[in-house]
Amino acid sequence: MSNLLPLTLKVNGEEKTFLASPHASLLRVLRDNYYWDVKCGCEEGDCGTCTVLLDGKAVKSCITLAHNCAGHEVWTDKGLGYNDEITRMIQDAFVECGSIQCGFCTPGMIVAAKHYIDHGGIADRKEIRKAISGNLCRCTGYNKIVDAIYKVAVELGREVR
């Protein structure tokens, strides 16, 4: 069996050192250490439920080699919600717009939305749909998820004129 190696990451603002197999995914390291908001839906990069921010960019943690992230900064939906105003706005919009049904895709979806807004995302339904196209949702049909992200973009003055 593979040896466990120490891995230092900054997770949700805190510097942490974990022990992880050389081949462990970032998803496994996070979940093994109780970051339960990072969901596992397929473990092959095909569903997006495990999406986190790595150095400010949305990535799928299941297809991210954990040790490759040593020394880098990871944020999850839960950590962002308590530290970042934009994420909190997105979370509130999801609640208000009825964007959440089973909620299993929600944390990853919110991180993808956060990436979109952070990178200048505008209030355009087509663009929003593209931005979340790596995140599957089986419950909502996406309408109300798009509504929520659109609402945040409008609140930030990103209307398309």
Binding site: W36, Q91, V95, I100, G103
Partner: peptide, 21 residues
Amino acid sequence: NRVPRHDAIAKARGEQLYSDD
């Protein structure tokens, strides 16, 4: 009305625990 569900906030904030959690 469009009433926010009692569990929606926990789900949005990543605090809802599921069977694998």
